[in-house]
Nucleic acid binder design. Structure first.
Lengths: 139, 139
DNA sequence: CTGCATGCAAACCGTTTGCATCCCC
DNA sequence: GGGGATGCAAACGGTTTGCATGCAG
């Protein structure tokens, strides 16, 4: 059987981290979350933020996004959906297209792996960065 | 216009790195490539490996895989294809299913980003790790 | 010859961890 | 009161970078 849910004590830090993450529709990095939370809990440590994000991800309360870029990103919306990452500024947004549930089955027949799931990451240039690039061209 | 191809001098290191990467069907990390190359060029520096992988990726000679996990991985096969990553050991394999070219168009209409491409990453347990897990259960 | 590329080592950055103290249950 | 959780700071692992030297063109 799987590891039984490991109690998860209800600390102030835990609550505030989850609340702040739920508040935004972006997909903040750990240190962005740290900045948001620190406004309400100035003495919180970065280690606590990391520990709790990891813990909540393990318990399925939030999503740890395994996307490109140097930093991990987190998402309070746990149902499967796809993302698009700006190749220029690294921002990550949700993409409103339906999830291909058939993909997992298709992968099962094509591979000897035991498939757990899938994720699609689009790459593109966000509107803001498109504007910046246009400006650069007419230098 | 794009940055003009920046000369790319033909050094021994460059050649050997590309040769070794082309030799394997796995998707090695930079330090795995470093180990392979060092057998032929014992004095090569890790920095050189990183610099050249980055440079060759920019020039489209190889692919830098923006997949989950802590380390970046590299691939000498540059045409779009999908990957599956073992959730337990982190190994990355190719997945032999057709590429959905329509996805990029679909994303274009659903988003204000200028779409550049997409990548699908499946998560699963590789055959080797499945075996290990079975052994653990009958402890 | 000239300047891009290399080897080496130090710096960097995101993340993890050890430890004494705290506080939720 | 006890064991998990915290704050703090040091350690860690992967990657990048500065610099003197080397070598391809």
């Amino acid at each position: 059987m799987n590891a039984p849910a490991p109690m998860l004590r209800l600390t102030t830090q835990r609550q505030v981290i989850l609340e702040e993450l739920s508040k935004v529709k972006t997909h903040p990095t750990a240190s962005e979350i740290y900045d948001m939370v620190r406004k309400r809990l100035p003495r919180i440590g970065l280690g606590t933020v990391y520990r709790n994000l990891e813990l909540m991800a393990e318990n399925g309360m939030i999503l740890k996004l395994e996307v490109g870029g140097t930093q991990k990103r987190f998402d309070a919306t746990t149902d499967n959906h796809y993302h698009i990452r700006c190749a220029r500024c690294g921002k990550v947004d949700d993409l409103e297209i339906p999830v291909f549930n058939t993909l997992t089955e298709e992968a099962s027949t094509a591979s000897s792996y035991q498939i757990l799931g899938h994720h699609i990451e689009f790459t593109g240039i966000c509107p803001e960065c498109q504007k910046i690039q246009e400006d650069e061209y007419e230098e």
